[in-house]
Each structure stands twice: as structure tokens, then as C-alpha cells.
Design a protein around this nucleic acid. Structure first.
Lengths: 124, 124
DNA sequence: TGGTTATATAACCCAATGGATATGTATGGC
DNA sequence: GCCATACATATCCATTGGGTTATATAACCA
């Protein structure tokens, strides 16, 4: 899977509150499908579908214990998603600093050339 | 918007590669719709739709400069998403340590009671 | 005023998603 | 072998999502 596709799958999987709740539950330890389904007002097949999505995204893996198929959290895709977010959050912060610097600069020569764009954006 | 709904919108917005690319571009500084559309083999309305999704998720905001509607990255939802991910990644790590401890314990008394589940999961 | 540029909206298409119910399959206990 | 348990798969349905083209709106320019 290409990195972009992996991120697609990871973020798409995380976009559903049921699936995030399942991951939250799995962060406390492995659990069977029935155990995972219990808190939700939803059919068991619906949960199985969600688990399939999570498994396809690599966010969980599953074992076998008699009839049970215990699910377990896999952290690597979460780490990749975090990395992506962190990277752009940092870029944004530096950009924000640059913007602030720009505003300072403009303030110094305010009368010479008014530029409404930045001021407007800054105010929002 | 409830926190869960906000996370829904944020992760759903991030699940599309075009939208992630737009955010990456905006991390370098604000840009107009046309500028954002230029790198993509996609119609302008398609980009406008993506921007609407990003704006609805609070990931961007928009100003006005004559006909242009400059877009600007908004970092707060990114921060919230990062927080969510970090929280569960950390929980998972502690859980992983507990699992390792459990494996040690089982190893010590291996002959008494074989439990295939954990071994299988560990191997994947 | 009329034209050009930048962007938004409308209407439509098709594929994917999230849910349901019904049924199939695998495993263990008796 | 038979039944129960745990889960998966099949099918269906309504909604959403990402794309298109065509058209409307908004702001500047001559």
C-alpha cells in the first residue's frame, strides 16, 4: 500500500465514532467481537463490518481462540497518522510566525501600501 | 459541535488525498482557489467542494480580496485530532508493556496451560 | 455599461458507506 | 452426531461522497 493510500484508510477508519470507540476500548486490552459489540445499539454484523474496516486499515489484527476472534490494537498506522498531522501542524506554526513577522513589517510601513487581505484574515 | 462530531469532520476531511495536499499547500501560506486548483487534474468546482469540506471541518478559513477568496490553514482541529491519536497511542503502548509482562509470566509456566491466542497475536 | 476573472451553486451520475435482516460457517461441549 | 456459541457473509436499502458540466454571482476593468 502506498503511503497516501495508507493514510486514506487510516483517516477514513478514524472518521467514524463507533470505530474510534472500538479503538478506545482496544487500547485497554484485546477483546472479542461480542465484547466489542456489547456497548453499541447496533447489530453484530454492523460491528463486524467496522472491524473489517479497521483491520483493512491495519489498525487492528485478529487472533483465534476457539470460536472467539480476539481483536488487538495495532499502533503503527496511528503513529503514521500522528506524524502526518504533526508535520503540518509544525509547518503551520512556522508559517504563522512568518505571518506575524509580515504583519510587523507591514505595520511599520502602514501608510505606504495598504494590503487588506492579511488584515482581514488576521481578524477572523 | 460536539467533540465527537468535530473529530468525525476532521478525520473525514483528512481521509482524502486531494484535501491533504491542499492543506499541505496551505501550510506554506495562504492561497486562492485557482492557485490551489492548479496542480490537480480536476475541475474548479471539484476543488471548491473540497474547500467547503475543509471549511466545514474548521480546517481552513477564508478571506476576501477582490474576486479572490484566499484560503488559510486553521490549526486547532488538527491539534485536537493529534491529541486524540496521541492519547490512544500512549494507552496502547502501556497496554503493550502489560502484554509483554503477561507473555513473560506465561513463558515461565509454559507446560502447565498452553494458550495459543497470545502467541498467535504476538507473531503477527 | 459591458466584458472578464474568480468563485460558488445546481443538477446529475456512479461508487462507496453504514445500517438492517437472514443465512452460512467454524469450533467446542454433550 | 447434534446443538449452541461466536462470528462472517450475502443481500438489500438509503445516504453520502467525489466527480462532472452548465450556469449564476460577485468584483474589478475599460
Amino acid at each position: 500500500m502506498t503511503p497516501a493510500t495508507q493514510l486514506d484508510a487510516t483517516f477514513a477508519a478514524l472518521a467514524d465514532p463507533t470505530r474510534r470507540a472500538i479503538l478506545a476500548r482496544l487500547a485497554l486490552g484485546e477483546a472479542s467481537v461480542t465484547e466489542l459489540a456489547q456497548p453499541f445499539a447496533m447489530s453484530q454484523p454492523a460491528i463486524s463490518k467496522h472491524l473489517k474496516v479497521l483491520e483493512h486499515a491495519g489498525l487492528i489484527s485478529r487472533g483465534r481462540d476457539a470460536q472467539r476472534r480476539p481483536c488487538r490494537l495495532e499502533a503503527q498506522p496511528l503513529a503514521e497518522a500522528t506524524d502526518w498531522l504533526e508535520r503540518y501542524r509544525q509547518l503551520w506554526e512556522t508559517n504563522f510566525q512568518r505571518l506575524d513577522a509580515l504583519l510587523e513589517e507591514m505595520k511599520a510601513q502602514r501608510e505606504a501600501a495598504p494590503k487588506p487581505t492579511i488584515d482581514k484574515l488576521k481578524g477572523e
